[in-house]
Amino acid sequence: MSLKRMILTLCGFYCVMGIMPLFFGGTDYIMNILIMILIWAVVASCWDVIMGFAGIFSFGQVAFYVIGAYASAILSVSMDIPPVFSIIMAGVITGLVGVLVGLPCLRLAGPYVALVTFAVHMTLVPFLRGPLGRAIGSGGSQGILTIPPIKLFGLAFSSDQLVPFFYLTFFLTIICTLVLVLMIKSYWGTAFLALKDSENFAASLGISAFKYKLMVFALTSFITGLFGALYAHYVGMLSTKMLSMDVFTILMIMMVIGGIGKYPGVVVGAVITVTLSQLLAPLGMYRPLIMGAIVVVLVLFLRDGIISPIIRLLSPLQRVVVEEE
């Protein structure tokens, strides 16, 4: 996808998202969904960049999300650091953890990377619940229940005022999305394409797979951590329940629906997945069942996710739009 097209798509998407509060500003339930769509779209985008674009089999995305959330919560609750700074610090901490995890595991083979990164996920539960976690202020099994709202320019942003929080998230989302787009289309992006085509040839040109993978890993971890932190201050409470397989599968489904490595397909995937999940919620246990079936069918029959057939359908239209502008 060309840069122009990508930006145009995202622009269109976020313009529409941006005006949603005009219609739903008064309905908490829908605002909540919209905010979660924004947060998850970015987290899933990061995962898509890691998996589909950089070709790293990382299963640690939820772990990084939770690390960011807990880092910011602990910093702001136990150390009284204002949330604005603690969120940024949480991003940096998560980025560092990303590098720490990336250093050993980016040299491993596919499923091993998946396992090692997932091992980080699995260690988090006993760590946060255990004495070590309690020592740093994770609140053990009950979690942290009193995370302060974000205070900025004399305003408090939290789940009590959804519209301001929506725009704060919106603002951050756009910045992070731009960073991701620029990365994909920068020299890094070209390097990855070269690596994907032929790792040996790319290496002969002096492109170090390891270096670039590590950089992508660090950057996406940073963004993921940032949004994890944002989430923490949004809901105002955290528990290790965040690490259940539910969040993991939901994010995975977003990628499958959007198409892996078909950025920005995953953003659309996030919208569809969250909506679908909410619509199916009254069905109880049939909800995950249907979601699972959808994944199987999509992987089998729509291997690039839902986005490519839509592009094909809309391509005549699109050409007109692109040419006009």
Partner: peptide
């Protein structure tokens, strides 16, 4: 392509309000 996002959101809108 922009339409995709739009469609998705309209889809969300319609579904959420009619349920």
């Amino acid at each position: 392509m922009r339409k995709t996002g739009l469609l998705a959101i309209i889809f969300t809108f319609v579904m959420l309000t009619t349920t």
